[in-house]
């Protein structure tokens, strides 16, 4: 353990250029995946919350179930899609950061959609009569609901970010852990474990935890200051 902390501190103190590159790519991939997934999943979650349609229950069950999608399965699905022998092979996206973003979007989208559906549905119960008495349509209500639920939804999005930055199975398969191209924090940790460099592997793990904690802290502080301003 002591060696792990030493390894972590040494890497940070030396501003190891390879580490900087890996950290940058990790954040780039996971944040991009979170933004894309949220852009689709928040309105989707709101829509499912507001409208009644046949198969709605089934869709909710499927979304909830896919929150537990194993990353390797998501990775394998994206791999088979993007492989040269697969339907999207022409794009040549396998073993690129883009492929990693796609795999993480597949992983996070159900989480953000399912949890935001829950949040919006509860809020809709409170707001429904008032909004409808003002003549606001369901479609028109979505931005209001998303905005008023923004603090809860921030937590939802952070849950998605946590999942994206923590998983290794999907990015390893679709990214290939190529040095300098698709190597991120989690795949580096797996590689160093395979090299038997356990202190270094754990040191990288500590850095990853600090990074994720930092992103969460920033989100928390932004949320708190906004909350105080609104009183």
């Amino acid at each position: 353990m002591d060696n792990a902390f030493q390894a972590a501190f040494r890497l940070i103190a030396e501003r190891d250029p390879v580490l900087v590159e890996i950290v940058t790519l990790s954040l780039q991939v996971s944040l991009t995946a979170v933004l894309i997934a949220s852009a689709i999943a928040l309105p989707l979650g709101a829509a499912i919350a507001l409208w009644q349609f046949p198969g709605r229950g089934l869709l909710i069950v499927i979304l909830n179930a896919f929150m537990g999608l194993p990353p390797v399965v998501a990775g394998l699905m994206v791999y088979l899609m993007l492989s040269r022998a697969g339907p999207l092979g022409e794009l040549g996206l396998l073993f690129t950061p883009t492929a990693m973003v796609i795999a993480q979007v597949v992983l996070i989208l159900p989480i953000v959609a399912a949890l935001s559906r829950q949040v919006i549905e509860e809020l809709w119960g409170e707001y429904r009569e008032q909004l409808q008495s003002l003549g606001v349509s369901r479609l028109g209500a979505i931005p209001t609901l998303l905005w008023d639920a923004r603090f809860s939804l921030t937590t939802v999005v952070l849950a998605g970010f946590g999942r994206a930055s923590a998983e290794v199975g999907a990015v390893l398969i679709v990214g290939g852990n190529i040095s300098g191209v698709t190597r991120v924090m989690t795949t580096s940790i797996a590689l160093e474990t395979n090299r038997g460099n356990l202190p270094l592997a754990l040191g990288l793990g500590i850095i990853l935890l600090v990074l994720v904690a930092t992103v969460n802290a920033v989100a928390y502080m932004v949320g708190e200051s906004a909350r105080r301003r609104l009183g």
Binding site: T32, L35, I36, A39, L91, L93, T98, P143, W147
Partner: peptide
């Protein structure tokens, strides 16, 4: 938050392009 949506999408597209 809402306004950064399109910019984020462009960033994603840029990442896709550099990857290629």
């Amino acid at each position: 938050m809402r306004r950064s949506g399109p910019r984020a999408l462009f960033a994603a597209i840029a990442l896709a392009i550099t990857g290629a």
